[in-house]
Amino acid sequence: METVLIAFILMTLSGILLGCIIGAAAKFFFVKSDPRIEDVNEMLPGANCGGCGKAGCSDLARAIVAGECVPGSCPVCSLAVVGRIAAYLGVDAGSSVKKAAVVFCGGSNSKARKSVNYNGINDCISASLIAGGPKDCRFGCMGLASCARVCPFNAIEVIDGLACVHSDICTGCGKCIESCPRKLIRLVPETAPFHVYCNSPEKGVEKKKNCDVACIACRKCLKAAGEDQMKIEGFLAQVNYDNMPGADVIEKAACPTSCISSPENHFPGTLKKENAAR
């Protein structure tokens, strides 16, 4: 009984003592910080995706309050949230076009030739070191899901050996861009009506050997689109995202290889959670 009592008293005393020390320390070493940073941080999405180029959401909040960045720097926030932050701080919201990542390749397993079997690390960068990658096309998607694994929002899914971005989930943070050894992923305005799903600068004949849906630079789409709305670079048609063509171009151009497609048609169906990145 005596021992229990001693232990009890000792613990209580030391608890009170330590509590006092902590309380005193909090008073003496108090660092004054701007409470607005905490409030802005609350409003930001908190995904810490790094899409803004800062170390995370709280770092961006600090930068916004300090005036280094405009609230629109966050690529993930909706316009309403950006407006709320701007109103709270009384600053200009800054313009931000909602962008989404697009994988510029249509070469799924059923469309692109894959003459040999790859056996090795399940990672695109590593696979590209072995005989130039598993598929015959050296410029297309390898389908090993490196981008899907880095996506913080599970917006990328690999279907039939081809990475597809769910533009409704994609926040345009841009993390996937670095992970692709083929540089297939670019951020483009989400409102673009269609994309040219090909990345190969090779000649049409060469590309056609490797893939059914390659752009063969036939220029049909250029004729269908308005002036300066599309361009051709090295046997590869591209949408000019600063001056976007209308959705009717898909119909009018009647792309012979179906390389041109709207995001919805390119990737039918909804996100299957189990197929998305682990």
Partner: peptide
């Protein structure tokens, strides 16, 4: 060709 495997 289609029976070949590439690996490290």
């Amino acid at each position: 060709i289609e029976e070949l495997v590439v690996s490290s």
